[in-house]
Amino acid sequence: MMATHNVRGDEGNVREGEVRDEGRTTSGPPPLTDATREKAREIMARYPRGRERSALLPMLHLVQSEQGYITPEGIAFCAEMLGITKAQVAAVSTFYTMFKRRPTGDWLVSVCTNTMCGVLGGDKIYKTLSEYLGVGHDETTPDGKITLEHTECLAACDYAPVMTVNYEFFDRMDPDSALEVVQRLQNGERPTPTRGARLCTFREISRQLAGWADDREGAVGEGRAGEPTLAGNRLAERYGISVAGFDPSTPIRKAADAAEKGGSK
């Protein structure tokens, strides 16, 4: 339900001290440590000197990689590292959909319900999963394992309808195959995505979002392009089509030459 204007930035004007931890549970997330600080400094070093604030988005991904969501502690941490106020950090973190305000499950299941996926079955898939899990948009199952959300177009409409688990794609889904993916996650299995690498947890993928390479052996090579990606190429190959006249040694015209020839163009 849209009780309020659901635009970005409604919650942006958070005043200091107003940042509440909606998701405080008895166990709570592990605290941020000196090692986190070290990683934050590594992120800051990627940007030109004096421009360290550019590190804020990756640093918020880093907070999620350790704590599973944007905690008040994480907001204070980023503020301290960057020398800005907590309100400034909160104004940014609440603007972006991928920064979660409540504890997120190990498995973030995102179902695309933008128009194309929606009409091809995405709306049904979302409904099916929502009913099965007993949670709505941006909610987590009571055991803390699975968070469900519906998302906007994921730039994979040629594979519609799609869903992702921790942002890895499961293509051309239907309610049954989507349900199977979720049930396998509940059984402790890790179903293989259609494209992209094998699954890792929400915290692990957040580490990659913070800018570090995937250090799992072979992961970068996993996930071949599917047929829709290759569709045009396959036709060109089958019918022997290529672009004529390509000569890689074609000289690059020099301004000096052009001037000599009377400056054509």
């Binding site: 991904h61 972006y96 991928m98 995102s110 998302t151 994921l154 730039a155 992702t164 921790n166 942002y167 890895e168 794609f169 494209r195 992209g196 690498a197 993928i205 990659q208 979002l209 390479a213 995937d214 992961a219 970068v220 996930g223």
Partner: peptide, 8 residues
Amino acid sequence: GEAVHAAR
């Protein structure tokens, strides 16, 4: 952000 496969 969501494009983790391509970012990797």
